[in-house]
Structure formats: structure tokens, C-alpha cells
């Protein structure tokens, strides 16, 4: 394992562990990134400020006055050394209700047209897979979920919207995600959920963790707002 892993400094205060250099999202590689990030976090290495799993890397931010890239690389290789068997721990599955189409999912019709499918077929394809949380990024609590069925994978909108409402469910390429708060966005918005992936007032502010699973299911618009 260690000979295919590359650890590189990014400036004097961060390093990146590359677990693969392939240019595509891979669930197995991502699972290793999530596990490694959890192990590094658990090791509580002095000077480490932030550990961030992404698609195929783990990024580590650190205080260069307390540790440095060489010292940390040593620690990381030790953490990685005993090749842990693939985690058999039960995966967390989040079931997410979505009201598809209409004013809450203004791009559903466009996606259906581009895919040469009915709107109902697009909804079925979107709600079918058990998606994986590859990583979080972009804005607090935004989870990059994959992978969307190729039949409904479209490039981002040519012109991003200035504001996408909180709870909007979007797709872009083979990724899907939920906008946790109102923000600009270039993804195709096909529905909305009342579930809040990020709520700073909650005891656990973040709903999703890297490696979690997400399944969407269709609801009537009237159910929105009744569950929070």
C-alpha cells in the first residue's frame, strides 16, 4: 500500500496524502481516504489543525511551529502501516425525503428533456442508488454524493444561479447534493428537501460524515415543513 501512496507538502502548513492519481471518483479509494482521515484524527497528533478526506486524498493542515511535513509524514505512514481490513462497521444510511419538480425543482423538466426521459423516470433514476458521501466541501455541510446514473448526468448549468434556496437537491455530472443554506449554485435543481444538512443550533450541527450513505425518496410537496 505504502509504495503507491504519495505524501506531498503544500506550502509550509499542509500536506496531501494521495491514495490514487486516477482522475475519477472511486468508492474503494475514497473509503481508504475516509478511514485514513479518521485514523489520523484519532491519533491526535500534536500540531494537526484539520484533517480533510476528499475523493482520493487526505489533506492535513498543521501548525508549522509545532510539527512539520517530514515529521507528520512519518506519523502518517505509521498510521497507515498495518493495512486495516476494509471496515465492516455498519454504514450510516440517511433517508432523505425530496419533493421533486415544480417550483421546488425548477430544472427537472430540462434534465428530463436533455436525457430524453420522462420527469418520473428521472426521479426514479435519481432516487434509486444508495449514494456515498465522498466528501464535504463548498459550504458548511455540503456533501458531494456519488454516483448519479450516467443517463441523467449532465454538465453544470451554463450560467450559475445567484441564489439557490436551502434544501435544494441538485445534480451535476455524476454528483448529486443538497444545498445546506441559500447560496449561489450551478447545479441542476430537481427538488427540495426539508432536511437540514447543517444547523449550527443542533447538538450535532452536521448531518453527514464522509463515508455515510444517502438514499433519496419522493414525497408530495405538502409534506414539506411538517418534518424538520
Amino acid at each position: 500500500m505504502s509504495d503507491e501512496v504519495r505524501i506531498s507538502a503544500v506550502g509550509d502548513s499542509a500536506l496531501i496524502v494521495e491514495l490514487s492519481t486516477r482522475h475519477e471518483a472511486d468508492a474503494d479509494v475514497n473509503a481508504r481516504a475516509v478511514e485514513l482521515a479518521a485514523a489520523v484524527q484519532l491519533a491526535a497528533i500534536a500540531g494537526v489543525l484539520d484533517v480533510v478526506p476528499t475523493f482520493q486524498t487526505v489533506g492535513v493542515h498543521f501548525d508549522p511551529l509545532i510539527t512539520d511535513a517530514d515529521l507528520l509524514s512519518e506519523c502518517l505512514r505509521r498510521v497507515m502501516a498495518p493495512q486495516a481490513p476494509t471496515s465492516t462497521a455498519a454504514r450510516v444510511v440517511h433517508r432523505i425525503p425530496v419533493s421533486y419538480g415544480g417550483t421546488l425543482g425548477p430544472d427537472l423538466a430540462e434534465v428530463a428533456k436533455a436525457a430524453k426521459l420522462s420527469e418520473q423516470a428521472v426521479v426514479s433514476l435519481h432516487a434509486a442508488p444508495l449514494y456515498r458521501v465522498f466528501m464535504l466541501g463548498f459550504t458548511p455541510g455540503f456533501a458531494y454524493l456519488g454516483s448519479v446514473e450516467p443517463a441523467i448526468a449532465l454538465p453544470r448549468r451554463a450560467t450559475p444561479r445567484a441564489t439557490v434556496p436551502a434544501g435544494s437537491v441538485g445534480i451535476a455530472g455524476r454528483q448529486t447534493g443538497i444545498y445546506p443554506s441559500a447560496s449561489p449554485g450551478g447545479w441542476h435543481i430537481i427538488g427540495r428537501t426539508p432536511i437540514r444538512p447543517f444547523d449550527p443550533e443542533r447538538a450535532e450541527p452536521f448531518l453527514f460524515n464522509p463515508g455515510d450513505c444517502v438514499q433519496f425518496y419522493a414525497i408530495e410537496p405538502a409534506a414539506l415543513g411538517r418534518r424538520t
Binding site: 506550502g11 496531501i16 486524498t57
Partner: peptide
């Protein structure tokens, strides 16, 4: 494929004109 963006990173989009990432950068 998205990776971390440490403070001070100079990233280069397709335009070839760099962007220096500062305090409020995305993660």
C-alpha cells in the same frame, strides 16, 4: 478531483490566470 485548498494556495483555472486563496477560501 477536488482536494484541500490551504491558505495561500495559488490555483490556476483554465484561463491560465492564477487565483491566490486567502482567509475566506472554500475548504
Amino acid at each position: 478531483l477536488s482536494e484541500i485548498t490551504p491558505l495561500g494556495t495559488v490555483q490556476v483555472p483554465a484561463s491560465g490566470q492564477p487565483i491566490l486563496l486567502m482567509a475566506d477560501r472554500q475548504t
